[in-house]
Design a protein around this nucleic acid. Structure first.
Lengths: 223, 223
DNA sequence: AACTGGATAAGTGGATACACAGATACGCTC
DNA sequence: GAGCGTATCTGTGTATCCACTTATCCAGTT
């Protein structure tokens, strides 16, 4: 059939489209925490009925991006200060595990690729756009993916989505995280060293130390 | 209204009921990995239309218990051998973190309660029923809950649900995990010692060492 | 005899329609 | 004037219906 390639990406179902649309909006910080998401509103926005939108809500609720209370609609979740810290703690444990398991798959080419990623990150930050956030997450996920643990990577990616709005707020306040480059260079260094146990510790510390930095800026943004 | 208390538990919506029904069935191992879950079949089973069942599928898919392929229905997920190991690795990282964070909240009363839990576990195993699995999970979750990290506990609980069918198979093959009692006594001992770092290591080892034990029995059961 | 093509049946995804629960605002009573 | 009860209205949750995709089976061809 000619109508096979409907969308630009491999979107097959209306639900998938709704899911990506809403998730994108949430990541971008278009809605504020506590805002109600009205199914019909979003449905007309992307030209479908509210049914697939509702099913998309379910997926988002499972990821913790929204909260659905029976008969009382769907509201944007938002994280309290405690929950931001908690999310970073979980990230530190999972990404620490990932980097430890990734160590056997580290070679020169990988290290070079990571260096290039760092360059892209810096360039993105200089353009002033919040592309830096996307690049930063790509850098972390790149390392995690080397662990060859699909479920682990998915869980980590899901956590990144939850904290993305807060990273954006942080980025908007401070023009560019000054120490970010150095921080991530240390990560590459420890990967180069080949010490899996040390790499895990460095990654864990790197992540938990980030939390208080953006918590200061994120707190006014929460509900 | 008199008809307020419809169900025995606080089930408010049909979807909630469908979700619990299917999740229970999956945990009990009623379906085998690869089986197709037919919405109409389950819908008539609990007296509703297939719509809430469909939405329940979404939640289950988000938890990784089933897989939904567009236009091709809902099949029971099941874990490959690699995925079983991976799940235990993730559990070890998360429960390790949880026990470390729980340490400040450990006191004599908590330790006594955990000892009682162990007794209940042993009693459950002697009755021959697979209640042991429930008790075992309750024991682990009890410790995790002391961390005071709701999101962390939820993630861990979700992993427990995924591996529950395999724990049951394991339990059915070997009448009673012989070393289980001793293993968990060690956990309580390290909690008593007050050394958070050591407790994390002990918990991590305890969990990853369990994986190969039940992997041997679980492998014939997978798809 | 095996493989490929099409036709038919079954089943999933989506839309519309309806019933019920919750929120809000107005009026009545104290 | 304030507080409570009630009525209306918005919006969610469920059911039925329709369209489209996919799988299966049979027939025709090589």
């Amino acid at each position: 059939m000619a109508a096979d390639a409907i969308g630009p990406l491999g979107i097959t179902t209306a639900e998938e489209e709704a899911y990506r649309h809403i998730q994108r909006a949430l990541r971008m910080g278009r809605y504020r925490a506590g805002d109600r998401l009205i199914p019909e509103e979003i449905a007309t926005e992307i030209g479908m009925s509210r049914m697939p939108v509702r099913e998309a809500f379910r997926q988002l609720a499972a990821e913790g991006l929204v909260v659905i209370r029976p008969n009382r609609g769907c509201i944007v979740a938002g994280l309290t200060l405690d929950e931001i810290y908690e999310t970073f703690e979980i990230r530190s444990a999972l990404e620490g595990l990932a980097v430890r398991l990734a160590m056997p798959h580290i070679d020169v080419e990988v290290l070079e690729e990571l260096e290039r990623q760092l360059d892209r990150m810096e360039r993105a930050s200089q353009t002033g756009s919040s592309d830096w956030v996307v690049r930063h997450q790509a850098f972390h996920l790149q390392i995690c993916q080397l662990s060859n643990r699909p479920k682990l990577v998915r869980q980590i990616a899901s956590l990144h989505v939850v904290i993305e709005p807060y990273l954006r707020i942080w980025f908007d306040y401070v023009d560019k995280p000054a120490s970010a480059r150095a921080e991530h260079e240390i990560l590459i260094d420890v990967l180069r060293s080949g010490d899996a146990g040390k790499a895990e510790i460095v990654m864990r510390d790197h992540i938990v130390e980030t939390a208080p930095l953006l918590a200061n800026f994120a707190s006014p943004g929460r509900r």
